[in-house]
């Protein structure tokens, strides 16, 4: 069985799904099922009875094999993220926390200093810390050193659908990392998810690519297939590249020649 580990917990699905931006809670729940995801992200918000989508804990927990990973979205400092993480753990009963600290709504780039500090504190408190970071190999290594369960570098800006713009840096992070590398943010198409998996990522996290698709449930299944294909390709080993053509058919002994 091809599994990867986050802390002590093994996962066989390498697709992690976000639950934001869906047109309805029922479409989101169907997409989660179609994706085969075992880990899904949720956000912590003030309870509001006018928002029908609030309190996703019950419906998500009812899906077999699902573990919740709350995020700290909304936090702009380490202190706020730590506070949100403690409350989220109370509610989820899950040790997973996606540390997400982006102070600027224009680009939503993660703050490396606050993210590092929050991750360090939360790892010490026993959380399985999954920090959302820029594709920075040095920061990734520092986060591994303080006990994070994974690192989640971005492919491109959150919700932008710009794909794997950081591929070169992701390659370095994957080569250097002793913990699972999960590409989070920016993916638009299943082919990009497959490409990330072919590079050797442990998993990918998508949300907008599914939620904003024409048919989110169908797209969730498409991503599931792509992630499996990409992982198999990584396992199988891609062929070497060559600058010149290398014939696949014999170039000699053709009919009518004298050779």
């Amino acid at each position: 069985m091809d599994v990867y580990h986050l802390g002590p917990q093994a996962f066989s699905s390498r697709l992690i799904l976000g639950t934001g931006k869906f047109s309805s809670a029922s479409v989101m729940l169907e997409a989660v099922k179609a994706s085969g995801a075992e880990l899904v992200t949720v956000a912590l918000r003030r309870f509001n009875r006018e928002q029908a989508g609030d309190d996703l804990f019950g419906p998500l927990s009812a899906i077999k094999g699902i573990t919740l990973m709350p995020n700290t979205s909304g936090a702009s400092t380490a202190a706020e993220a730590v506070r949100a993480a403690r409350i989220a753990r109370e509610l989820s009963g899950s040790p997973f926390i996606k540390v997400e600290i982006h102070p600027n709504p224009q680009h939503l780039m993660p703050d490396p200093i606050e993210t590092y500090e929050a991750s360090r504190i939360l790892a010490k408190e026993g959380f399985l810390v999954m920090p959302y970071i820029a594709a920075d190999p040095v920061l990734a290594k520092r986060l591994e050193d303080v006990g994070c369960a994974s690192v989640m570098p971005l492919g491109s800006a959150i919700g932008s659908g710009q794909g794997l713009g950081t591929a070169d840096m992701l390659g370095i992070i994957i080569r250097e990392s002793g913990i699972p590398v999960i590409v989070d943010a920016g993916l638009r198409s299943p082919s990009e998810a497959a490409a990330a998996m072919e590079m050797g990522c442990a998993a990918v996290l998508v949300n907008s690519a599914v939620a904003a698709a024409g048919n989110p449930v169908e797209m969730a299944a498409a991503f599931a297939g792509a992630v499996i294909a990409g992982r198999k390709a990584f396992h199988a080993g891609l062929m070497p590249q060559s600058r010149t053509a290398v014939a696949t058919s014999p170039l000699t002994g053709f009919l009518g020649t004298n050779a």
């Binding site: 934001g20 912590l44 928002q51 804990f57």
Partner: peptide, 10 residues
């Protein structure tokens, strides 16, 4: 007093 719940998020 803050009363919080899980909402959709990525």
């Amino acid at each position: 007093v803050e009363i919080l719940a899980f909402a959709g998020g990525g």
